[in-house]
Design a protein around this nucleic acid. Sequence first.
DNA 1: ACCTGAACACCGTTCAAGT
DNA 2: ACCTGAACACCGTTCAAGT
Lengths: 237, 237
Amino acid sequence: VAQAKLKSASRSTSARRPNTLEPDDIIAVTLAMARKGGLAQLSMRRIAAELQITATALYYHFHDKNELLDRVTGHIMEAIPNPDQRLPWTERLRQLVLLQMQTLLAYPGLARFLVHRRDSAGALRWTEAILEVLYDAGFRGANLKRALATLSFFVHPLALADERPRSGAVPMIQRQLITRRTKLAPNKYPRLIELLPELADYSYDDYLPIALDGVIAGLASELVRVGRTARRKSARP
Amino acid sequence: VAQAKLKSASRSTSARRPNTLEPDDIIAVTLAMARKGGLAQLSMRRIAAELQITATALYYHFHDKNELLDRVTGHIMEAIPNPDQRLPWTERLRQLVLLQMQTLLAYPGLARFLVHRRDSAGALRWTEAILEVLYDAGFRGANLKRALATLSFFVHPLALADERPRSGAVPMIQRQLITRRTKLAPNKYPRLIELLPELADYSYDDYLPIALDGVIAGLASELVRVGRTARRKSARP
DNA sequence: ACCTGAACACCGTTCAAGT
DNA sequence: ACCTGAACACCGTTCAAGT
């Protein structure tokens, strides 16, 4: 969808000079590459090769790699649809955060870029989307800050990774690997060894929605408490 | 502390051949470099230069960079002290997680390495330390899994970064940067612009303990609910 | 205006060769 | 046993030169 928009935009602006390489073409190609292998795998030389130009030519259109990635990640984050506004805010927030996290996992290196460049288009879009839901839910002032912070600290560990996992469900504690390791140091990880049978091979994906529900429930209880206090205050005078 | 332990270990094993470079010497030097600039800044060539050898010499002592970093990060994570066991488990967990997070922030790139190598000594130490507290608190089986998962999803966003921030308190939403950006696209981030005055310049560090308390409170309520159910079940027959 | 080519200062890693 | 040196296949970026 985002790619199609880019293609038509470049075509209309380059109507007079059809064979000229436009910045939007570079972004579109980079976006396609990112979809396949994530951000971390992108290099100026690889992008240039895909475009059949030299790497240094890219520097004519963009000041540096960050500027190009800023544009690309902006498109990625803007492609995340906003959940239906008529849903209860808890469900709306749940859907939004799951979609955002899915996107961060689909593009390894994206989360790191957004944190590194907190003023990038993608980072602002992430914030804006969450603020829309929180505001409609009734969060204001200090509570809004707190809610935004709480959601900022809710990060899928695999969003830290630079490679896309080959299997769908990534086990947090992989019995094989741990067993090999712990055999080398049997008295270093007593609890881990003892609890391994009940912990082994559980995946992040299984517990993501559960953990998220916990976070949202916490936010909801904050909001209710604030609402009660506000009503009491306004009723007194 | 960890460095002193390494030094003496290498001295005792190399008593017969005092001028020989030991793997522990390499680890000690790498550890010192990591303390100054984080993991992300370490390269085989830089480590070798500090040791006054060639980069390729390192490959005689370690199979690859990951093996060296595995050892180094193991020492880093093992240097985190376990909180006093006599404390209430909620306080114990709070102290542990704050210390762990402080360590991850002190060594940019460490969090990413631990996620990338979930069977590394450092990653296992992280898990072991948390399991010790959760087990003593009374978490078992599915609840233990859930608690561990919940804590896994609690990640400081700046742990994703590769550079240590120069200033102590890093603002999540920096008024200057955002204002510059949003002026270029005034109708793209309506909520962000509207709420900027009340959101601006608040730091992650201010909200970290608050967010953590929320997570721990959630875990505690889980534990209480489970305890009640178990007592009811055992009282019935 | 738009792009190339050479160059610089980096990476991780392999491998034959030296002592 | 322990290390060097050359080499390979990469990086991001600058800058003079071409058309």
